[in-house]
C-alpha cells in the first residue's frame, strides 16, 4: 500500500530543493528556450533554402518539444536520486517509514508536474516565435504525451538503478543516459533513413512509433492507432522491467550499505 502522506512529503522535499537551486529552475526554462531559438531558426533557414516546405519547421519543433517530454521525465528521476546523494540524505529518507515504491511514485508525480510546466513553456514560446501550435494533434496529443512520459520514466529508472548501485562516479548518465535511444527514436527523420539493423532496433524503442506516427499525421492527416498501441505495449512492458531492475539494484546496494553511495 502506498502512503500518500509520505509521497507528498517527498514531493515537498523536491519542491524545496528546486526552490533553493537556480540550476534546477534554469534547467526547466533556460535550455528548452535556447534549443527552441537555435533549432527553430535553423528550421526556418532550411525552409527558405528548400522549397518553402513549412512541414520542415513543424517536424523540427515537434521533435524538439516532444523529446522534452522524454528527457524531463527521465531527468527528474535521476537528478532527484542524485540530489539525495549530493545532500547525503539517502540514509535519512530510507531509514524512515518511506518505502522504495513511495519514493518511486513521488519522483514520478513531481517529474510529471515539472515536465508539464517545461513543455507548456516551450509550447507557448514556439507559438509566439514560430506560430507553431503544440496541440496541433488535438486530443491525440494526450496519448502521445502519456506514451512519451512512460518512455522517460523507463529510461529514468534504468539509469537510476545504475546510479544507486555505482554512485556519483557515473552521475553524467543522469543527463546523458536517455540520449542512447534518441537516434533510434527518429525525432527529426523518418524510420527508413536508418540502416536496416537500426530500423530493427528502432522497432523496439517505443518513442520511434510515436514520432513516426506524428510525422504521418503531419504529412497525411491520418492517425495510426497501431503505432500508438505498439508504443504503449512496449512502454508498459519496459517500465515494469525497469522498476524491477531498480528494485533489484537497490537491494543489491543494501548489501554494501546505502550510505556508501
Amino acid at each position: 500500500m502506498i502512503n500518500f502522506n509520505r509521497v507528498f512529503a517527498m514531493i515537498y522535499r523536491y519542491w524545496l530543493a528546486m526552490k533553493h537551486s537556480y540550476d534546477r529552475l534554469g534547467d526547466m526554462f533556460y535550455w528548452p528556450a535556447m534549443d527552441l531559438f537555435i533549432w527553430g531558426l535553423t528550421g526556418l533557414y532550411i525552409v527558405k533554402l528548400s522549397t518553402n516546405n513549412q512541414n520542415i519547421i513543424i517536424i523540427v519543433l515537434t521533435g524538439l518539444i516532444y523529446w522534452l517530454v522524454i528527457w524531463r521525465s527521465q531527468y527528474e528521476i535521476t537528478t532527484n536520486l542524485l540530489q539525495e546523494m549530493w545532500d547525503r540524505n539517502l540514509v535519512n529518507i530510507f531509514a524512515s517509514p518511506l518505502k522504495v515504491s513511495e519514493w518511486i511514485v513521488a519522483v514520478m508525480i513531481f517529474g510529471f508536474i515539472k515536465m508539464v510546466v517545461t513543455v507548456s513553456f516551450s509550447g507557448i514560446l514556439a507559438l509566439i516565435l514560430y506560430s507553431y501550435p503544440i496541440f496541433a494533434y488535438g486530443l491525440y496529443t494526450i496519448p502521445i504525451i502519456l506514451s512519451l512520459v512512460l518512455t522517460g520514466w523507463t529510461a529514468g529508472f534504468i539509469v537510476a538503478a545504475f546510479i544507486i548501485r555505482f554512485g556519483q562516479k557515473i552521475q553524467t548518465l543522469a543527463w546523458t543516459g536517455v540520449a542512447l535511444i534518441s537516434p533510434f527514436s527518429v525525432l527529426y527523420y523518418p524510420l527508413n533513413i536508418l540502416p536496416d539493423w537500426a530500423q530493427k532496433v528502432a522497432w523496439f524503442i517505443p518513442s520511434s512509433h510515436i514520432f513516426e506516427g506524428m510525422r504521418e499525421i503531419t504529412f497525411t492527416g491520418r492517425i495510426s492507432y497501431d503505432k500508438l498501441y505498439i508504443s504503449f505495449g512496449l512502454n508498459i512492458l519496459y517500465l515494469f522491467l525497469a522498476l524491477w531492475f531498480f528494485n533489484f539494484m537497490f537491494n543489491k546496494t543494501k548489501k554494501i550499505g546505502l550510505d556508501k553511495q
Partner: peptide
C-alpha cells in the same frame, strides 16, 4: 529514529 554525527541533511534547506 536515529541521529549520527556522520550523516548530513539537505544542504540548502
Amino acid at each position: 529514529n536515529f541521529s549520527s554525527a556522520y550523516i548530513s541533511l539537505p544542504w540548502w534547506f
